[in-house]
C-alpha cells in the first residue's frame, strides 16, 4: 500500500463466487475455443473498480474499502472480492 498525503488508491476486483455459475465467463470460454484457443481451462468474468480515497492511515483506508465492497461494490451472495493497493 502506498500513501501520499493520506491519499490511497485501491483496485477492487469482483468475481462470481467459484460455486456460482458464471454465464458470461462460460460464453467467453466457448468463444475462445471457437476461434482456436485450445487449452483454456476456465474464464471468470468479473469487474474492477479503482477507488481513490483519503483516509487517516492504512488501517482506516482498508476498513473503508472493505465496507464499500460489502455494502455496494460486490454482492456477497454471488460474488467474491479482493482488494489491491496501487500507486496513483
Amino acid at each position: 500500500m502506498t500513501s501520499q498525503d493520506n491519499r490511497f488508491v485501491a483496485r477492487v476486483l469482483v468475481y462470481p463466487r467459484a460455486e456460482v455459475l458464471d454465464p458470461q465467463g462460460r460464453a467467453i470460454e466457448d468463444a475462445l475455443g471457437r476461434i482456436g484457443f485450445d487449452g483454456v481451462r476456465r474464464i471468470r468474468a468479473g469487474k474492477s473498480f479503482e477507488v481513490a480515497l483519503e483516509a487517516e492511515d492504512e488501517r482506516q483506508a482498508t476498513e473503508a474499502v472493505d465496507r464499500m465492497c460489502r455494502q455496494l461494490l460486490a454482492n456477497p451472495i454471488v460474488e467474491d472480492y479482493t482488494v489491491e493497493w496501487v500507486s496513483e
Binding site: P23, Q24, A27, N75, V78
Partner: peptide, 10 residues
C-alpha cells in the same frame, strides 16, 4: 434473501 445473476443463456 438471495441474488440475481444474468439469465442462463445471457
Amino acid at each position: 434473501p438471495g441474488a440475481m445473476r444474468r439469465n442462463r443463456d445471457l
